[in-house]
Simulated assay, not measured.
Amino acid sequence: MIKVLRYTEYLYLAVAAISIYKIATLWNVDPKETYIFIFFAVVSIGMFIFRRRYRKRFEQRNKDNQQ
């Protein structure tokens, strides 16, 4: 289960990286279209941080319960 949580963290980072790439390529062409990618990048980075904290708390709780 924890491995799945770890993979989803990096999935959010991948979405953020793709969004940042699209922002860089579209900024000079159509700045209004980049706003949705800015939103995706910010939300993805936020979700990465949130999921990482949640996973670490989950691991710590399991570690404490086993002792």
Results as ranks from 00 to 15, higher is better:
Phe50Ile: 10
Phe39Val: 14
Lys63Val: 00
Arg61Phe: 14
Arg53Ala: 10
Asn28Val: 03
Thr34Glu: 02
Asp64Ser: 06
Gln60Pro: 01
Lys3Trp: 14
Tyr35Val: 14
Arg51Thr: 06
Pro31Gln: 08
Gln67Ser: 13
Val15Thr: 15
Tyr54Trp: 12
Asn62His: 13
Ile38Tyr: 09
Val15His: 00
Arg52Asn: 02
Thr34Pro: 01
Ala41Gly: 03
Phe37Tyr: 12
Gln67Met: 10
Trp27Val: 09
Lys56Leu: 07
Val29Thr: 12
Arg52Lys: 12
Phe39Ser: 12
Phe48Cys: 03
Val15Pro: 00
Asp64Arg: 06
Val43Met: 07
Gln66Thr: 02
Glu33Asp: 01
Phe50Gln: 08
Tyr10Ile: 07
Asp30Asn: 15
Arg57Trp: 08
Ile23Met: 12
Thr25Asn: 05
Trp27Gln: 11
Thr8Trp: 11
Thr34Ala: 03
Ile18Glu: 04
Phe39Thr: 15
Arg51Trp: 00
Phe39Trp: 08
Phe40His: 05
Trp27Ala: 05
Ile20Ala: 15
Ile18His: 11
Leu5Asp: 08
Ile18Phe: 04
Thr25His: 04
Arg55His: 03
Ala16Phe: 01
Val4Thr: 10
Ala14Arg: 09
Lys22Ile: 07
Val29Ala: 05
Met47Ala: 11
Ala17Tyr: 13
Leu26Tyr: 06
Ala16Cys: 06
Lys63Arg: 08
Lys22Ala: 12
Leu26Asp: 13
Arg55Glu: 07
Ala17Cys: 13
Ser19Trp: 01
Glu59Leu: 11
Thr34Cys: 04
Leu13Trp: 03
Lys22Thr: 04
Tyr54Asn: 09
Val15Trp: 10
Arg53Cys: 04
Ile20Cys: 12
Phe40Met: 05
Thr25Lys: 11
Gly46Ala: 04
Tyr7Arg: 14
Met47Glu: 09
Ile18Trp: 05
Phe50Asn: 06
Leu26Thr: 06
Arg6Tyr: 09
Thr25Ala: 04
Ile18Cys: 13
Lys56Ser: 07
Lys22Asn: 08
Pro31His: 14
Val15Leu: 08
Met1Pro: 03
Asn62Glu: 11
Asn65Leu: 15
Val15Ile: 15
Lys22Gln: 14
Ala16Thr: 03
Glu59Pro: 02
Gln66His: 04
Val43Tyr: 04
Leu5Pro: 00
Pro31Trp: 13
Asn28Lys: 14
Val29Pro: 05
Ile2Ala: 15
Tyr7Cys: 07
Leu5Tyr: 15
Gln60Trp: 06
Tyr10Leu: 07
Ala24Met: 14
Arg52Glu: 06
Tyr35Lys: 12
Val29Met: 00
Asp30Met: 01
Pro31Tyr: 14
Lys3Leu: 15
Gly46Phe: 03
Gly46Ser: 04
Phe40Leu: 13
Arg51Ala: 07
Thr25Trp: 05
Phe48Thr: 00
Pro31Ile: 09
Tyr21Phe: 13
Ile49Trp: 10
Phe40Asp: 01
Ala41Ile: 01
Val42Arg: 01
Leu11Met: 12
Ile38Trp: 07
Pro31Cys: 01
Arg51Leu: 10
Ala24Thr: 10
Asp30Leu: 03
Glu33Ser: 12
Phe50Arg: 05
Glu9Gly: 10
Ser19Gly: 05
Ile2Pro: 11
Arg55Leu: 11
Tyr12Thr: 10
Lys63Pro: 00
Asn62Ile: 15
Asn65Lys: 12
Tyr35Gln: 11
Asn62Lys: 14
Lys32Arg: 08
Gln66Ile: 12
